[in-house]
Amino acid sequence: MKINPQTSLIHAPRKAPQYISTVQPPLYRASTIIFNNTDALFNRHWTDAYDYSYGTHGTPTTFTLGDNIAQLEGGTHHLLCPSGLSAINLVNSCFLSHGDEVWVADNIYGPNMEHLRNLETRYGIHVKVYNPIDVNTFTPSDKAKLLWLEAAGSVTLEFPDLTGLVKKAQAHNILTALDNTWGAGLAFNAFDFGDEHLSVDITVHALTKYPSGGGDILMGSVVTRDQKLHHKLFRMHAIQGISVSGDDTAQIQRSLASMRVRYEAQAQSALILKDWLKQQTEFVQVLHPADENSAGHDYWKEICKDQQSAGLVSVVFDAKYDLQDIRNFCDALALFKLGFSWGGPVSLVMLYNLKEMRSLAHKHLQQGLLVRFCIGLEHPQDLIQDIEHALKQMNQQKIE
Rank of each mutant, 00 (worst) to 15 (best):
A190F: 01
Q308H: 05
E196M: 08
Q367K: 10
F159Q: 06
R14A: 07
P111Y: 01
A12Y: 03
G339S: 08
Q266N: 07
A295D: 11
L370K: 02
L218I: 08
Y19D: 12
D226R: 00
N43T: 10
H197M: 15
P211I: 03
H205E: 09
N395F: 00
N353E: 13
Q24D: 13
M394E: 02
T47H: 07
D226V: 01
G183A: 14
V284K: 06
E73T: 00
Y299M: 07
N131T: 15
D386N: 02
I88L: 10
I239N: 15
A270W: 01
L119E: 15
P345Y: 00
K337R: 09
G215Y: 07
T64S: 04
I375G: 02
V371M: 01
G368I: 02
F95R: 07
Q285M: 13
A295G: 07
G368W: 01
S86Q: 09
P140I: 08
K355R: 10
R235Y: 07
N131E: 12
I217H: 13
H98D: 15
Q266S: 12
G376R: 08
D382R: 08
T62R: 03
D382Q: 12
V315P: 04
G296H: 08
D179R: 02
S245C: 10
L198W: 13
A238T: 09
N107F: 02
G194S: 14
Q279A: 05
L277N: 11
H379C: 05
T139E: 06
F138E: 12
